[in-house]
Design a protein around this nucleic acid. Structure first.
Lengths: 292, 292
DNA sequence: GCGGTTTACGATGAACGTAACAATA
DNA sequence: TATTGTTACGTTCATCGTAAACCGC
């Protein structure tokens, strides 16, 4: 019995096929067959029922799956704890919403990089909807998005929320939301949905809502007096400091942005779980230093 | 990282030397060197301090030792639980005192053999003192002896005790322990020690004590009227049934024989722990059916 | 017939044992 | 000098990928 056999068995069971597992493991498909066959021979037990359409775990297979997962997690734990953690190598694929990318994400990456100086980081910035899909397709190791993701396969770690404040150009006096466009996050995001819903109740059908996938572009439009909108204070900070925009209260409450660090629960990864913990600390520290 | 590396590391750490580990593993000594070196390279951590006389675990090595032991136990657990337990192969070396060998040991071996039909059994019958030494030198997997063994490295499972009764030849009338020799277990056993101690207090220096390493020979001597002595009723049963010996009370209390199933605590072995459990059940059942 | 698994086989590479070497007490 | 760990090297055996055969919808 080897770790490679258990790892192979795990992925075959989890992905439901020899071919899918072979892709996950960067292996030829016959190699996967061989490994499983060898494992079955060694244990003197059939692990899969090959008959009915898809692959189905036998009773023995179900038992082994639990053990295999435990083994693989402890193996990674050894590599991280016993082996010099700073010597861990590999690629850590992180996806984040632009808001956090402009807030504390640099600090997080700095902290992560310090803890794992030899791990490469691949950062993707996208809207939560796409991050979610990427995570579920295993194209990301960790996603920071407006969560939580309601899938049994995903673990969500709550992060501090970002309060939203309304901003308008400094030179504007009265703002009539029936005339002045409101700008918000990209159209397929939760803040956009919630804003349009609130606006519809308050202003009615005359409302105009712009959406922009670029937060800095949005803020520049607000500074230019083209639109007004609710954003986290951290994004408006440079414009506030320059006196270009000011906060105001249009009487429309928008809920704070709730972010989570989300990752696939299986297979458990020490690196990912550890990173989510670091992220929680960094975010909490950052929010303590940036109230509002 | 492979199971063989972890197993090798475990034995090097536990036995305190590459050479000793190579013997335990039936491997050449350079092969052990290679495995440890590879493991150290993979983990980027030195596991042993080779300098001062004997091998000393580094901090990393100490951490790994715990993980390695856990891994090896789970590996065996998989082989027993997931793999068909009845397909388990190997050799199970059991040592026992003659008393249990003549009592419930056949029933135990039958039960064990039924549970593990493909495991070979090697049975040694000897006095507790030698069984103890054999166990500590890893020449036995499980020892049934007058325990417990007070070593931190040994796990003792208490078994039902054997009450002792005094027997004499049926045709004898009065028995004067100052004249009639008393026969007991072999000289280096606990019952012998306890008996001589009690006799010395009661009878004084005139006492005569024989010792015999063969229980059946002892009983035959008692039946012949050569001596009297305290034995478990199970051993006397055939002589009682034949009317050759009878129980009597010389007024000397001898404590019951306390047996334990003892085995080395490390490395944990699923087979051994399971066997000790079976033994406890068999012994309890047997004693319930053979009171006194 | 087609997606997916098993079988066949040649080639590569990891790991072993023997033997020589080095270090330590 | 005896004991123990390391280095060197030729060999063996496990495992991989390619290619072909083999199912079950």
């Amino acid at each position: 019995m080897t770790f490679e056999q258990l790892r192979t068995f795990f992925w075959v069971a989890r992905l439901g096929g020899f071919r899918k597992a072979s892709e996950q493991l960067n292996l030829s498909q016959p190699a996967v067959s061989t490994r499983i066959a060898t494992l079955e021979t060694e244990l003197q037990a059939k692990l899969f029922d090959r008959g009915a359409g898809a692959l189905i775990l036998t009773k023995h297979g179900q038992q082994l799956l639990g053990y295999a997962e435990q083994m693989l997690f402890v193996e990674e734990e050894i590599k991280q704890r016993v082996g010099n953690p700073s010597e861990a190598e590999g690629l850590f694929r992180i996806g984040a919403s632009e808001t956090v990318a402009q807030a504390w994400l640099p600090e997080f990456i700095q902290a992560f990089s310090a803890a794992y100086p030899r791990v490469n980081v691949d950062l993707t910035v996208d809207i939560s909807k796409d991050l979610r899909a990427a995570l579920l397709e295993r194209r990301l190791d960790l996603a920071v998005l407006m969560g939580p993701i309601s899938e049994f396969s995903v673990t969500n770690v709550a992060l501090p929320e970002f309060a939203l404040h309304w901003y308008k150009a400094a030179h504007l006096k009265d703002v009539d939301l029936a005339r002045m466009p409101v700008i918000s996050y990209a159209s397929q995001t939760r803040p956009y949905r919630e804003l349009t819903s609130a606006l519809a109740r308050k202003v009615g059908p005359k409302m105009r809502v712009f959406s922009s996938a670029s937060l800095s572009a949005s803020l520049r439009m607000i500074a230019a007096g083209i639109a007004v909108g609710p954003y986290p204070r951290v994004l408006a900070a440079p414009f506030l400091a320059a006196g270009e925009v000011v906060e105001f209260d249009p009487g429309i409450a928008v809920p704070a942005l709730e972010f989570t660090a989300s990752y696939l629960a299986e297979p458990r990864s020490f690196l990912v779980e550890e990173s989510a913990g670091i992220m929680g600390q960094v975010a909490a520290t950052w929010h303590a230093a940036h109230p509002g």
